[in-house]
Design a protein around this nucleic acid. Structure first.
Length: 570
RNA sequence: CGGGGUGUGGCUCAGGUGGUAGAGUGCUUGCUUCGGGAGCAAGAGGCCGCGAGUUCGAGUCUCGCCACUCCGACCA
C-alpha cells in the first residue's frame, strides 16, 4: 500500500477523552473514530489489525473443529422470551420496533438463537457433539462505556456454543475450547492468566476467564504464586480462618451498650472508638428479589454480592432501601446489628466472623452500638458461609499460601452452561434407547476489539504501538528519505515490489514529507520492520530498524527483503 | 441510577466584569530546507452543543434540554 493513497490520519495530540494508553493510541494512530459513546468506526489500518486478530481466532476455532456460521444481529423478542432473558436483560438490551410494532432487539449474546438452530436441526445422539461459532457484532447498552473498545456498546465477539449428549461430552468440548483459547492468545502474543470465574445464576458447573494482566483492567484477580490457583475476585473462596489459641481461649465479655451519636459509617466508628476496623462487624441489609436479607462481614471487608446473591439464586439484588432498613432494625441507617434480627429476616454471616470474639456491632437503636458481642451467645445466624471478597494475603484455597492480587482485562470466557437453555427451549435429542434428553451446552466468547486493545496495552511505548507481527496491519514499511531522488525511489520501489510479491502487507511511504514525519508515523502505527532507503541507496545499502527492539542494521536490499520474510515467519 | 466536569475551525485549547471570533497544530499554495513531527510568507476553514429568556447588543448572564466525560453503583 502506498501511504500517499492510504486513508489514514494520525494525530500528534492525545485526544482529550482518552485515558488509557490503548485508547489514546488507537485514536492517535487513526485506527478508529468515535461515533457515539461506546460506539466506534474502524478505519482501514485499524481494520487490518482487527481482521488479523479475527482470522487467528477463526483459524483456531476451525482447527478445534468448530463450524462457523452467522446469525442476525436483529432478533425478534420471542427468541429471548422463552429463556426469560427478554425481561432479565433489562435496559442493557437495545430494543426496537418494526413498522408493524413488533418487538425486536439487537442481540447482546446468542445462546437462544443457537439453541433454536440446533434444536431444529439435530434430533439424534448420532449427530452430536457439535460446536458452532460466529464472529459478529454484539449490542449491549452498557451503563458506562469506558476506555474506548475495552467496554463498548457495540463490539465484535467470537461466540461459540457446544452441544453434547452428557456432562462427560461437555467436558471434552470444553477442554477442546480451552486449548484453542490458549493457542489463540499465545499466537496474539498476550501474557494472560486463566482464572476460575463465577458461574452464578447461569447455574453451570464451571467457568474460566482468560485475563490479560493490566493495571487498567476492570476485574480484580486473586492468584497464588506458590501453586497455580487463580480466580476472579468474585469467585475466590475464603474459608474459615484459623485462629490462635489466644483468641480461642479469650473469655467472652459482657455485652456493653455504647453511645455513638451520629456515627454511621465504619470510618466514623474507627475514629470514635479508636479501635481498628477488625474489631467491628458490619451488618448490611440487601434486597434480594424483594426479600430483605442481612449480611455480616468484618468491618474492613467488602461483601461479595455475587457470593451472597448465589445463595438465593438472585436475579436482582440491591442494597435495601433506607425505609426498609429503618423498619426492620428500628433504627436509622448505620446502626443495624444482628441481635434478634433472625426472627425477622435471614442473617448470613461470613466465615471469618464466626471465629471473632467480643466484637462491636450496631445496636438496632439510633446512636448506639454494642460492644463485646459474640456469635451464638448473643445472636443466631441463619447461615455461616463465605460472602466476602478475597483480599491480598488471604490463604490460597488450594495450597494455603498467601494470595496475591492484580487487575486484568477479560479477553475470553469459557463456560459450562449445562441444560439451562436446552431445557428452556426444548433442545433435545433422542438417545440410543429412544429416550429424549436435553443437550448439554457450553458457551465460549472472545471479545475481538477488547483483545486488540489488550494487545496494544501490552505492546506500546512513548512513540506508539509495537504490534506483534501476527497482528500488525502492515509487517514492514519502506521509507524513501527523498521522493524526488531517482536512485532512492528506484531502490525503494524495487524492495516494495519484492515484498508485495511474497504476499506480505507492506507500506511504501511515498509522501512528499520529511523523513522524520514518516518515522514518527511508522512508529505510531506500530509497523514491526522499517526499511529506510537514503544516503547509501547507490551502494544498494539500506537501514533496517525493528520496532520491537529498536535494533538497527545496515544491509543490502536483498538482505532487507529477507529480513522481512524472516520476521513474518517467526 | 447518584455525584462532579466539559461542550468554541479536523485535533488540543484560550476567550476578567456583555460590544463584529483567537492561538497552536493539521490542511492548501509558494520559496528555502531535507535521516526523528523544519523555517518564512500567503490562504481556506466557525449555527461558539440545542432551545427559550434578559438586553440596543449574548461565546460571555438566566432557565430548560441534549451530548460527551470522570468517580461510584451495576455488568450474561
Amino acid at each position: 500500500m502506498r501511504v500517499s493513497r492510504l486513508f489514514m490520519a494520525t494525530q500528534r495530540e492525545v485526544p482529550s477523552d482518552a485515558e488509557i494508553p490503548s485508547h489514546q493510541l488507537m485514536l492517535r494512530a487513526g485506527l478508529m473514530r468515535k461515533v457515539a459513546s461506546g460506539i466506534y468506526s474502524f478505519m482501514p489500518v485499524g481494520m487490518k489489525a482487527y481482521r488479523n486478530i479475527e482470522n487467528i481466532v477463526r483459524e483456531e476455532m476451525d482447527k478445534a473443529g468448530a463450524q462457523e456460521l452467522i446469525m442476525p444481529a436483529v432478533l425478534p423478542a420471542e427468541v429471548y422470551m422463552a429463556s426469560g432473558r427478554w425481561e432479565k436483560f433489562g435496559p442493557e438490551m437495545f430494543r426496537l420496533l418494526d413498522r408493524g410494532g413488533r418487538q425486536f432487539c439487537l442481540g447482546p449474546t446468542h445462546e437462544e438463537p443457537f439453541t433454536e438452530a440446533v434444536r431444529d436441526t439435530i434430533k439424534s445422539y448420532k449427530q452430536l457433539p457439535v460446536t458452532l461459532y460466529q464472529i459478529q457484532h454484539k449490542y449491549r447498552d452498557e451503563k458506562r462505556p469506558r476506555f474506548g473498545v475495552m467496554r463498548s456498546r457495540e463490539f465484535v465477539m467470537k461466540d461459540a456454543y457446544s452441544f453434547d449428549v452428557d456432562e462427560a461430552g461437555l467436558d471434552v468440548s470444553y477442554q477442546t475450547m480451552y486449548k484453542a483459547y490458549c493457542s489463540t492468545f499465545d499466537r496474539l502474543g498476550l501474557d494472560y492468566i486463566i482464572v476460575d470465574a463465577d458461574s452464578g445464576a447461569m447455574g453451570g458447573s464451571g467457568s474460566q476467564e482468560f485475563m490479560v494482566k493490566s493495571i487498567v483492567g476492570e476485574d480484580a484477580i486473586c492468584y497464588c504464586s506458590a501453586c497455580n490457583y487463580a480466580a476472579n475476585e468474585e469467585k475466590a473462596q475464603c474459608g474459615v480462618p484459623e485462629v490462635s489459641d489466644d483468641v480461642k481461649n479469650e473469655a467472652l465479655l459482657d455485652v456493653e451498650k455504647i453511645y455513638t451519636p451520629n456515627v454511621h459509617t465504619i470510618e466514623e466508628l474507627i475514629e470514635f472508638t479508636k479501635s481498628g476496623p477488625e474489631a467491628f462487624v458490619k451488618t448490611i441489609l440487601y434486597n434480594i428479589d424483594g426479600k430483605i436479607v442481612a449480611a455480616m462481614v468484618r468491618g474492613d471487608r467488602d461483601i461479595n454480592e455475587t457470593k451472597l446473591g448465589n445463595l438465593y439464586d438472585a436475579t436482582e439484588m440491591t442494597l435495601a432501601a433506607f425505609d426498609d432498613v429503618e423498619r426492620i432494625t428500628g433504627a436509622k441507617v448505620g446502626f443495624a446489628g444482628p441481635i434478634n434480627l433472625k426472627e425477622k429476616i435471614d442473617v448470613i454471616v461470613d466465615n471469618e466472623v464466626s471465629v471473632m470474639k467480643n466484637f462491636i456491632v450496631g445496636a438496632c437503636e439510633t446512636d448506639y452500638h454494642l460492644k463485646n458481642v459474640n456469635i451464638d451467645r448473643d445472636f443466631e445466624a441463619t447461615k455461616v458461609c463465605d460472602i466476602r471478597n478475597a483480599v491480598e494475603g488471604d490463604k490460597c484455597p488450594k495450597c494455603g499460601k498467601p494470595l496475591s492480587m492484580c487487575r486484568g482485562v477479560e479477553v475470553g470466557h469459557i463456560f459450562k452452561l449445562g441444560t439451562k437453555y436446552s431445557s428452556a427451549l426444548n433442545c433435545n435429542y433422542l438417545d440410543k434407547d429412544g429416550k429424549e434428553n436435553p443437550m448439554v451446552m457450553g458457551c465460549y466468547g472472545i471479545g475481538v476489539g477488547r483483545t486488540m486493545a489488550a494487545v496494544i496495552e501490552q505492546y506500546n511505548d512513548e512513540d506508539g504501538i509495537k504490534w506483534p507481527v501476527n497482528v500488525a496491519p502492515y509487517k514492514a514499511s519502506v521509507i524513501p528519505t527523498k521522493i524526488n531522488d531517482e536512485e532512492i525511489m528506484g531502490l525503494s520501489e524495487k524492495i516494495y515490489a519484492a515484498i508485495c510479491d511474497k504476499n506480505i502487507d507492506v507500506l511504501i511511504d511515498d509522501r512528499n514529507e520529511r523523513p522524520g514525519v514518516k518515522f514518527k508515523d511508522a512508529d505510531l502505527i506500530g509497523i514491526p520492520v522499517r526499511i529506510t532507503v537514503g544516503r547509501r541507496a547507490s551502494e544498494d545499502i539500506v537501514e533496517v530498524k525493528y520496532r520491537a527492539t529498536g535494533e538497527v542494521k545496515e544491509m543490502t536490499s536483498a538482505e532487507a527483503i529477507q529480513a522481512v520474510l524472516d520476521a513474518v515467519k517467526a
